[in-house]
Design a protein around this nucleic acid. Sequence first.
DNA 1: TCTATATTTTGATAAATATGAAAGTATGAA
DNA 2: TTCATACTTTCATATTTATCAAAATATAGA
Lengths: 99, 99
Amino acid sequence: MKPLPLAKLEANESHVEALKALAHLTRLQIFFFLVRARGEAPAGAIQEALGIPGPTLSHHLDLLRRAGLIQSRKEERYIYYSVRREMTSELVRLLTACC
Amino acid sequence: MKPLPLAKLEANESHVEALKALAHLTRLQIFFFLVRARGEAPAGAIQEALGIPGPTLSHHLDLLRRAGLIQSRKEERYIYYSVRREMTSELVRLLTACC
DNA sequence: TCTATATTTTGATAAATATGAAAGTATGAA
DNA sequence: TTCATACTTTCATATTTATCAAAATATAGA
């Protein structure tokens, strides 16, 4: 009696959080900068590339991280950020459900 | 000398508007109600299904419509809403670019 | 005409989010 | 130690967004 593996397009809070995180031009640019970086980039590289003041960038990175879209790793004086694919594909799955 | 048709994942304001429109639990539920409706649904049907006060619903529908995610059509006393696939797949295209 | 229905607009209030200066923390080099 | 770098946190202010009562509009019967 196992349930059919139907595409169960149930929208939940974590989807909302991820969409909220991306629903801001600066954050979308940060996210795509990291996508294009194909790996890690330290906060400073993002700051330089996009010309965002430190505290503002830090705040946006925190939001993206808490939404599960990116992750961070500290090494020496740097904090390296990178994209978390899982959450991105989770969003794609949700949106392609309606095609 | 035509440019290669590369997946040009450039995030722009219309993407932000669409993401903003979806980045709210009530609106995401409205959107998926319309997806599941497989066609049109009058505002009243959405209101009854989700239990949202009229003015609030109206406001959210307006936001989704202005973001290009849904469309409306008036017939007699009813206003029928339905999903606009184009914008949805535009978002999917943007997000799948990074896979 | 009057009344009921379907939905929107207005407008007021509350809540959430964005921004960046200033101060704080952590690390490595001199 | 001290200094410089890399980044974050705190905090105050400004802006945007959410909510829904009340009023408005539009249409279809009776």
